[in-house]
């Protein structure tokens, strides 16, 4: 993870690895169930719940609870705010690489 002054300017909410994974996975599709997210991110129930809750509290993801074949199902979707946050984060990552490339060319 970025550990210098640069990292202080990043969105801390999605900088954390599992939360970044949740937002990235949801950005790739329309929505994902808790079980699918858990498999894609290879993490535990507890870990995923805690981080998903933080993203939900921030308005980055929306949780839809329902039933499928009489079994409870939790589905996560990325909100417009979440998508903007990921785009901003990606732009920051690209800016870091561009800055580093420019610095390399100047030397």
């Amino acid at each position: 993870m970025v550990g210098s002054l640069v990292s202080e300017t990043l969105d801390r909410l999605i900088h954390e690895r599992i939360r970044l994974g949740i937002v990235s996975a949801l950005a790739a599709g329309e929505g994902m169930s808790f079980a699918d997210l858990k498999q894609v991110l290879k993490t535990s129930d507890g870990n995923l719940s805690v981080h998903a809750r933080k993203l939900e509290d921030a308005g980055y993801v929306r949780v839809l609870k329902g039933f499928e074949d009489r079994k409870p199902k939790t589905e996560y979707r990325l909100t417009a705010k979440g998508r903007r946050a990921l785009e901003a984060y990606l732009a920051q990552m690209e800016a870091i690489l561009n800055e580093a490339r420019d610095a390399l060319e100047r030397t």
């Binding site: 550990g3 870091i96 800055e99 580093a100």
Partner: peptide
């Protein structure tokens, strides 16, 4: 933005 270090670049 602050000038990124080598670690920043690798991490990005």
């Amino acid at each position: 933005m602050t000038i990124p270090t080598h670690e920043d670049r690798e991490s990005a």
